Amino acid sequence: MTWLLVIAGAAVGAPLRYLTDRFVQARHDTAFPWGTLTANVLGSLLLGVLTGAATLGDHRLHLLIGTGLCGALTTYSTFSYETLQLVGVGARLYALINLALTLTSGLGAFSVGHAVAQAMST
Rank of each mutant, 00 (worst) to 15 (best):
A8C: 14
A8S: 14
A8H: 11
A8Q: 10
G9D: 04
G9M: 03
A10V: 00
A10Y: 00
A11V: 12
V12H: 00
V12L: 11
V12M: 02
V12I: 15
G13A: 05
L16T: 13
L16E: 00
R17L: 02
R17I: 01
R17N: 03
Y18Q: 08
Y18I: 07
Y18A: 12
L19A: 00
T20D: 04
T20M: 05
D21S: 11
R22E: 14
R22C: 04
R22H: 11
F23V: 03
F23S: 13
V24Q: 06
V24F: 06
A26M: 08
R27F: 08
H28K: 13
H28R: 15
H28Q: 14
H28A: 13
T30Q: 04
A31G: 10
F32V: 06
P33Q: 12
P33C: 12
W34H: 15
G35A: 05
G35C: 05
G35L: 03
T36V: 15
T36W: 04
L37H: 02
T38K: 11
T38A: 15
T38W: 02
T38R: 10
A39Q: 09
N40A: 08
V41S: 08
V41P: 06
L42C: 13
G43V: 05
L45G: 14
L46A: 15
L46K: 04
L47T: 04
G48R: 09
G48H: 07
V49D: 01
V49F: 13
V49M: 14
L50G: 09
L50D: 09
T51E: 13
T51V: 15
T51Y: 13
G52Q: 11
G52L: 08
A53E: 04
A54E: 13
T55F: 03
L56N: 11
L56A: 15
L56T: 13
G57A: 09
D58Y: 08
D58T: 13
D58F: 10
H59R: 14
H59D: 14
H59G: 04
H59M: 04
R60L: 08
H62V: 10
H62K: 12
L63S: 02
L63F: 10
L63R: 09
L63A: 12
L64S: 07
L64W: 07
I65A: 15
I65V: 15
I65M: 10
I65E: 04
G66L: 04
G66M: 02
T67K: 06
T67V: 15
T67P: 09
G68F: 00
G68S: 09
G68W: 00
G68P: 05
L69Q: 10
L69K: 06
C70L: 10
G71F: 02
G71N: 07
G71I: 04
A72Q: 00
A72G: 02
T74H: 08
T74D: 02
T74I: 05
T74S: 11
T74P: 02
T75R: 06
T75Y: 03
F79I: 03
S80D: 10
S80E: 09
S80V: 11
Y81D: 06
